[in-house]
Computed example of a mutant assay.
Amino acid sequence: MEKIVFLDSATIIADIRRPGVAHQWQEYQSTGAEQIATRLKDASIAITNKVALRRETLEKLPGLRMVAVAATGTDNVDIECCRERGIVVSNIRNYSVHTVPEHVFMLMLALRRNLLAFHADVRNGAWQKSEQFCLFTHPVRDLYGSTLGIIGHGAIGKAVAQIAAAFGMRVLRAERKGAAEVRAGYTGFDTVLSESDVITLHLPLN
Results as ranks from 00 to 15, higher is better:
Gly168Pro: 10
Met108Leu: 14
Val5His: 12
Thr38Tyr: 06
Ser130Arg: 13
Lys41Tyr: 01
Gly168Asn: 10
Ala161Gly: 02
Leu135Phe: 11
Ser30Gln: 12
Thr99Trp: 05
Thr72Phe: 13
Ala155Tyr: 12
Ala165Arg: 15
Val100His: 05
Cys134Pro: 00
Ala184Arg: 14
Val67Thr: 06
Cys134Met: 14
Val21Lys: 12
Ala179Val: 09
Val97Thr: 15
Thr57Cys: 09
Lys3Gln: 12
Ala110Arg: 07
Met66Tyr: 09
Ile12Gln: 10
Leu64Ile: 01
Glu59Gly: 02
Ser90Leu: 09
Val21Met: 08
Ala159Arg: 14
Arg141Ile: 09
Ser9Met: 10
Cys81Asn: 04
Gln29Pro: 01
Asp190Leu: 08
Ala174Pro: 09
Thr191Val: 13
Leu115Tyr: 13
Val21His: 13
Arg141Pro: 00
His119Ala: 08
Trp127Arg: 07
Gly20Glu: 11
Gly20Pro: 04
Val88Phe: 10
Ala117Asn: 05
Phe105Cys: 04
Met1Leu: 11
Glu102Leu: 05
Ser130Lys: 12
Cys82Phe: 07
Ser44Val: 10
His98Val: 13
Pro139Val: 07
Leu7Asp: 02
Ser44Thr: 15
Ile156Glu: 06
Leu135Asp: 05
Val100Ser: 07
Val171Glu: 07
Val122Asn: 04
Phe133Tyr: 15
Arg176Glu: 02
Glu175Tyr: 10
Phe105Val: 05
Leu193Ile: 06
Val104Ser: 01
Ala110His: 07
Ile150His: 11
Glu80Lys: 15
Gly154His: 11
Ser96Pro: 01
Asn206Trp: 05
